[in-house]
């Protein structure tokens, strides 16, 4: 599903002393099948933006299009429930929202709420559990007996069981150990590709934005500050630093290396091993 924001404003507590414009004339387009990273420091408007995506809130001015659904000011959306079925949001620490007696019941809660027939639910529970890498024997267990990483997978399976076409991930790796972080991100990327989703990743990790995103949207004070491919955005360190962000560590290192050796060492998608080869050549060659 294509997602388009057209000059969207969102104002909290309008006409009161606490009036606060959280989104300010925001326009962008996210094509079907893309992964977009949204970055910005605390208070830049990220949370307000993602709440528009499944109609939790509506724009104060402007228009949001998600596939055929349109969100406009002061007009109750006609198909709010249908929209929510299409847009799955994985909020921060989704495992805090688990509540059922068994893993199976928890995963089934979403589809049951949307009126999916019982037989179909069983099928979807099994599929989603498999997609997030939960072993079948865990389905009868209480989710509260599982480890933190497994609980997060249960919560994610519950969202996938609704079969969304858009997946919104809000800091999906917060609190996980390094292996857990990589496993969860690789899992999302695989699901994104297999199910041909449109994915939005809200993250503080510039590393993840570089590794997984097709485009990066940088927000500042409710406005779109920058937009482009990861390489385009991360080539502008100073501009990012002005809004209290930074480039991935690889880019930071390349800038320092260029400085030290007095010649540019550019980012060309190299991994650590390839960078080591470049550096070994620089350090070893007296003519360099």
């Amino acid at each position: 599903m294509d997602i388009t924001f057209e000059k969207v404003d969102y104002t909290y507590q309008a006409n009161s002393p606490f009036e606060h414009k959280a989104l300010d004339s925001m326009s962008f387009h996210l094509p079907t099948g893309s992964v977009t990273a949204i970055v910005g420091h605390t208070g830049s408007g990220k949370s307000t933006l993602i709440q528009h995506l499944n109609g939790l809130i509506r724009p104060t001015n402007g228009k949001v299009r998600i596939g055929d659904y349109v969100l406009e000011p002061k007009k109750k959306p006609k198909h709010a429930k249908a929209l929510r079925e299409k847009v799955g949001i994985v909020f921060q620490y989704p495992e805090h929202q688990l509540f059922e007696e068994t893993v199976e019941k928890d995963i089934a809660f979403g589809p049951r709420n949307f009126g999916v027939p019982e037989q179909e639910i069983q099928k979807r529970v099994a599929e989603s559990a498999q997609a997030v890498g939960l072993r079948a024997d865990l389905l009868k267990r209480s989710p509260f007996e599982l480890s933190g990483g497994q609980m997060r997978r249960v919560a994610i399976a519950g969202i996938l069981a609704v079969r969304p076409r858009v997946l919104v991930l809000d800091e999906p790796t917060a609190g996980l150990d390094p292996r857990g972080q990589k496993e969860i991100m690789d899992m999302f990327y695989r699901i994104h590709q297999e199910q041909q989703l449109t994915t939005i990743l809200v993250t503080h990790s510039m590393e993840d934005a570089l590794a997984y995103a097709d485009q990066v949207l940088v927000l500042d004070k409710g406005k779109k500050y920058m937009e482009g491919t990861p390489v385009e955005v991360f080539s502008q360190r100073q501009a990012l630093q002005q809004v209290q962000l930074d480039v991935p560590e690889m880019f930071q290192f390349l800038l320092k290396a260029s400085d030290r050796f007095g010649k540019p060492v550019a980012y060309q998608g190299q991994d650590v091993e390839r960078l080591a080869e470049q550096l070994a050549a620089l350090a070893g060659d007296p003519n360099e």
Partner: peptide, 30 residues
């Protein structure tokens, strides 16, 4: 990065704690 350099035979005697330490060592070798 330091370990990848060592595998390529670059003689790093000490584990670098940050970018600057690694670049200092590489610059000295150079």
């Amino acid at each position: 990065l330091a370990h990848a350099l060592q595998k390529l035979g670059v003689p790093l005697t000490e584990e670098p704690i940050d970018h600057e330490e690694l670049l200092d060592t590489l610059w000295t070798l150079h």
